[in-house]
Amino acid sequence: MKNIFILTQFEADTLQAMKTAAYMSENKGNIILVTCSEISDSITELLFLSAKDHIDLNKRQDILDKWSVYKAETNIATTVREHHQFGISRPVIQKLLESFQVDVVIAPLSIQQSKQYIHKLFLKLLHNSNCPLLLLPEKDQTSEIIQRALFLDANGKSLAPSLQQLPFHVIHQSMIKEYENQSLNVLVDQLRVDLIVQPKRSNEVAEKNADVTSLGLPVLTI
C-alpha cells in the first residue's frame, strides 16, 4: 500500500493513525492528511475560502512536530502531505480517491465519534466506495504493530492478493473451523489477532457492527 489517506481533525489519535499508515506502507509510502469542512452558503464567503480558518493550527503543529520526532527516531522514508476538502459528495470523494490513487483510508476514533455532519457523511461515503477503510479503536488499545489479522467473511470470499501482500498475516475465517463454536473474543485472544478484516456490507456501516467494534481492535473493511 503506497498512498494512504488519514481523515483527521488533528486530535491526538492522528499520530497513532500515521504510525499505523507508515507500518502498512512498509515505511516508504505517502500519507495524505485529509481535513474537511462544510462549504458555506454565502457567495461572498466562498470567494475567500481559506483552509486555515477551518483547522486548529496549534493541534496541527503539535501532531506534525511529534511526527517529525518519530520519523527521525525510526529513520523511515514515509512522506506526509495535507489536503483540505470544502464540502463532500459521492462524485467528489470518487475523484479524490482517484487523483491521489488512494490504497486505503484510515479513520481515527476521534473522526468516527465526531458529531460534525461533514465527518459522518465523509465516513458514510467512504464506506460506500471501493476503497478499503481502516477504523482505528481507542489509542491505548491500538497496537502499533499488526502481526495477524482475521478475515471475517461467512460467505467464503477469497482473500485479495493485495491483502496477502501486506506486512501482516491474514487468517481467513474458513481456516479456523475448529474454533467455530467459540466467541469472537476468545478466538481473537487464542489466535493473537491484532486486526479484523471484513468485507463491506451494503446496508451496514462497520462502526455500527457492535460485535466487531467491542473487540477494541482496528477494523479494515474492504
Binding site: 477469497s158 482473500l159 492478493p161 496477502q164 498475516h169 491474514v170 481467513h172
Partner: peptide, 14 residues
C-alpha cells in the same frame, strides 16, 4: 496458512 484466489494460491509463514 494456505489460501487461494481464482488464479493463484498463497503460502504465508509468520
Amino acid at each position: 496458512t494456505l489460501s487461494y484466489t481464482d488464479t493463484e494460491f498463497f503460502i504465508n509463514i509468520s
